[in-house]
Simulated scan of single mutants.
Amino acid sequence: MGYPFHPFKSVKLHLKADNRIMMFLSSASEAPLVSIVREGKQVDGPIHQHLEGQLIYPQLGVLILELDNKVIRLAPDRAAWIPSNVLHSVILNQTYRYHSVYVDPAFFHGPSAQILQVRPLFRELILDAESWFRDPDRRAADRDRAKILMDEMQHAVHLNRAVEIPRRTPPKSNLPRYRSEPRRQTFLDNLVTGRRCQ
């Protein structure tokens, strides 16, 4: 999948989708964003980060996003904004189609990771972004569309639907202490062997 010009100033952006590795070698350009659409049956992406910000939207399927020590479920009514250099991973275990819009931080630098409600205009802009910045005669119009997309993202309703991943170690078992008392050890032995406890 080739582009008539390279969208970003960063050195390299590696993307793995459907057992293909797409690499975008970068150079200065007029394109403030690029949209990649991925389709498949299953993906378990490693934890990674980008120099660009990323807007991720699952058009088909449910996407599980690990971000900022939280697990987030994204359905087609939600998108996630991931600022540049933020660690994240994506898991999909069913047929999927999702859009990743990579945004040059010089064009838009969102404040923090956010889960966003996707309304009709926001959705259509995300879906259409795949076709932007391919035709040199449309670059000015595509740049205007990109500004509208960023504006829609900024004004989208923020959702707080994340599950915190605990950082503490699990509690220690009380079983060794319980076994140290003879009466309780007899109870455990009887429980394992099926004998009646007295």
Rank of each mutant, 00 (worst) to 15 (best):
41 K>R: 09
42 Q>C: 11
42 Q>M: 06
43 V>W: 12
45 G>P: 01
46 P>L: 00
47 I>W: 10
48 H>L: 08
48 H>V: 02
48 H>P: 10
48 H>E: 08
49 Q>P: 05
51 L>H: 14
51 L>M: 13
52 E>M: 02
52 E>W: 08
53 G>N: 03
53 G>T: 03
53 G>R: 01
54 Q>D: 01
54 Q>W: 00
57 Y>W: 10
58 P>S: 07
58 P>R: 01
58 P>H: 05
59 Q>P: 00
59 Q>C: 10
61 G>N: 04
62 V>E: 12
63 L>K: 05
63 L>D: 01
63 L>M: 01
64 I>Q: 08
66 E>K: 05
66 E>S: 03
67 L>F: 01
69 N>Q: 11
69 N>S: 07
69 N>L: 11
70 K>G: 02
71 V>P: 04
71 V>R: 05
72 I>A: 03
74 L>W: 02
74 L>Q: 03
75 A>F: 08
75 A>Q: 06
76 P>I: 02
77 D>M: 06
79 A>L: 02
79 A>N: 00
79 A>F: 00
80 A>R: 01
81 W>T: 09
82 I>W: 02
83 P>H: 10
85 N>D: 09
86 V>G: 07
86 V>T: 12
86 V>D: 00
88 H>S: 11
88 H>K: 07
89 S>N: 04
89 S>T: 01
91 I>S: 10
93 N>Q: 14
94 Q>H: 02
96 Y>R: 04
96 Y>L: 07
97 R>A: 02
97 R>L: 08
97 R>M: 11
99 H>M: 01
100 S>K: 02
101 V>C: 05
102 Y>H: 11
102 Y>E: 15
102 Y>M: 11
103 V>W: 05
104 D>W: 01
105 P>I: 02
106 A>C: 03
107 F>E: 04
108 F>C: 09
108 F>G: 02
109 H>L: 05
109 H>S: 12
112 S>P: 10
112 S>L: 11
112 S>T: 13
112 S>Y: 12
112 S>Q: 08
113 A>Y: 09
114 Q>Y: 05
114 Q>E: 11
116 L>I: 15
116 L>Q: 06
116 L>R: 11
117 Q>K: 15
117 Q>S: 09
119 R>D: 15
120 P>E: 12
120 P>K: 09
121 L>G: 04
121 L>F: 05
123 R>G: 00
124 E>Y: 05
124 E>K: 03
124 E>I: 01
126 I>K: 05
127 L>S: 00
127 L>D: 00
129 A>M: 04
130 E>Y: 03
134 R>Y: 14
135 D>G: 10
135 D>S: 00
137 D>I: 12
138 R>D: 09
141 A>I: 08
141 A>L: 14
142 D>S: 07
145 R>A: 08
146 A>G: 04
147 K>A: 15
148 I>M: 13
148 I>T: 15
148 I>V: 15
151 D>L: 14
151 D>Y: 13
151 D>K: 13
153 M>R: 06
153 M>F: 06
153 M>V: 13
154 Q>T: 12
154 Q>C: 15
155 H>A: 08
155 H>Q: 06
156 A>I: 07
157 V>P: 00
158 H>F: 08
158 H>C: 15
159 L>E: 12
159 L>A: 07
159 L>Y: 06
160 N>L: 10
162 A>N: 02
165 I>K: 13
165 I>D: 07
165 I>P: 04
166 P>G: 04
167 R>H: 12
